[in-house]
Design a protein around this nucleic acid. Structure first.
Lengths: 339, 339
DNA sequence: TTGTAAGCGTTATCAT
DNA sequence: ATGATAACGCTTACAA
């Protein structure tokens, strides 16, 4: 592959001049510039990103650590990041961390070896301290979907407590009184926070949520089925199910339907995330919209900005709030209509 | 960040020795090795991947070009690739190409700038010639989901004609005689090949498929709805719909149901791909399983092998065949039962 | 406006 | 077993 030297030789100029042309440097004569460009074209020259990164100490790349590419939630996340990467002309270095300490650690480590100064990481397995240390090393280190106070201005996160409250409040407003929760068995912050929001809101109406009314499983459709099966088996009475996410909601719904329980007339369900699935399952899922893509975009922009040395207003934080999307899986028990 | 020189200074050895330790080189005394390792540990040393790539001309990374991260099909693809990347300890450089000539070109170009010698690319917009040229430049250039004869041993692809035949054959075997096709409007090979397979198979039963029975739209759920709406509006009679993929099938199904057409008793539907959606829409979709993940894994392995200089048996080709997955969206019109 | 040369962090080839 | 030293391809003062 042609190097800058080859171009210089053929064009009859020095390395420096070629470099200037490549980088649209200022002090080059028009004639020379054209000639060099022509030679580059002819030789199919492509600047060596590695050499460049080495000397400039800038990698023109954005590191991304997410849990799992298959999950539509993360796919959306990745998609949002990709959009800004493309816009800002940086290459994405992608690693899946699978919510495992060692894997997440290794993913970040590899990114560090590549010396990428901007990275948006979704980490649930690593502890605060570790993450804060990384943040200290990498100027453009941004956390998504997690809040750590010490680096609060580098966190783009969702208010899960508020989310839990909104779910409960909506069901309450529709006249529901008997609740059941289908949650994620992974002991990360999210399910805990959502649950606490739910409890907080229910408490305002003097409703308790006993442990037996909560079932924990994997946060996917199968997990939703299993959780619902267990709830049914336990003979608990309920008219409202609050799911950890849309996938679990859909699974739970499927199982209910298989048992001839009608949704929403017999039982109402509300999901969380508002991924595509929510719109296409039957009945369509009432859920909380998680503005992942917007958040991903913000996170990527932020990471790149910090890496560039820009200092965004340090007083602002990037907290997002999920919003209710009413579709067809929740019935109004006052009016007897689905809302 | 600590460099190899820092390590050498602190450990009191030369650069060469440190380099040997890093690479588990042979000729280093045990005592020295330990001492150096200890220093590396203390200083939190991380080899600079850029410097390494520069001098070795090997990038320890795998380039990936796919159309669209959001699409579950590509998410699965990416997931398969990620698995081998992790196993083989290489970093993924990911670019979305969005089935646009310029974008795909740029994606590959960027990968080339990073000098990655292994890449698996999913390109539908670039022409054969361009792709063959890239393949000539990059030892580990592997095409997925496309077959080009000149570089046949570097293509991992699906037999779409056979797929089309299988769809039609299944419907035929279930006693269907009136067909309609919901296809993709993108004029890439896939829809054309599937359609030709369908026609070929129907011809064996002396059934024609007039253009008016085919509706082209975007290959997603909304496209499926639109296509089906048009078919219905045109007043065509049919009992079997062959969809381009599961998303379109699901959209078509939804629209049918909204018009009180029962699936599968009134109309049977068959999808293609077998993504998660197929299992979770109602009724569950009978479809063709596209072994994407397996293919992605193979492609990644192949790319890395070629990049390494290994020469896999040049006589074998990597053609895969989709297989029928019977679920609940197709009815047997002989027996009157869904099959 | 153009060229010279040092240096980025490694690996690899010689010597020793 | 260890150490100098020359690349690798590029950017960037500093000279001219």
């Amino acid at each position: 592959m042609a190097t800058i030297k080859d171009i210089a030789d053929v064009a009859g100029v020095s390395l420096a001049t070629v470099s200037r042309v490549i980088n649209n440097g200022p002090k080059v004569g028009d004639a020379t510039r054209e000639r060099v460009k022509k030679v580059m074209e002819e030789l199919g020259y492509r600047p060596n990103a590695n050499a460049r990164a080495l000397v400039t100490r800038k990698s023109a790349s954005l590191g991304v650590v997410i849990a799992e590419l298959l999950d539509p939630f993360f796919a959306t996340l990745a998609h949002g990041i990709d959009a800004v990467a493309r816009r800002q002309n940086v290459q994405i270095l992608m690693s899946a961390g699978s919510i495992e300490k060692q894997t997440e650690l290794k993913a970040i480590d590899t990114l560090l070896q590549h010396r990428c100064e901007a990275m948006v990481v979704h980490s649930k397995a690593l502890d605060d301290k570790t993450l804060v240390e990384f943040a200290a090393q990498v100027p453009g280190f941004v956390l998504i979907n997690r809040y750590i106070e010490d680096i609060g201005h580098r966190c783009v996160w969702l208010d899960n407590v508020a989310g839990g409250q909104t779910m409960a409040r909506h069901m309450l407003s529709q006249g529901h009184k008997k609740f059941v929760v289908v949650s994620s068995k992974y002991q990360i912050d999210d399910p805990i926070q959502r649950l606490s929001g739910i409890r907080k809101e229910l408490a305002l109406s003097d409703i308790e949520l006993p442990e037996s009314h909560i079932e924990f499983s994997t946060p996917d459709q199968e997990g939703g089925e299993i959780a619902m099966r267990n709830l049914l088996a336990r003979g608990i009475e309920f008219t409202a199910v609050l799911a950890y996410n849309d996938a679990m909601a859909s699974g739970a719904m499927t199982l209910l339907q298989d048992h001839d329980v009608n949704v929403p007339t017999d039982v109402s369900i509300i999901g969380y995330d508002d991924v595509l699935l929510a719109k296409y399952c039957r009945p369509k899922l009432t859920t909380l919209h998680y503005p992942v893509e917007m958040m991903a975009t913000k996170a990527a922009d932020l990471a790149l900005a910090y890496a560039r040395g820009d200092v965004p207003d340090p007083s602002v934080t990037y907290k997002y709030t999920p919003t209710l999307v009413k579709r067809d899986s929740v019935m109004n028990r006052h009016a007897g209509q689905s809302t």
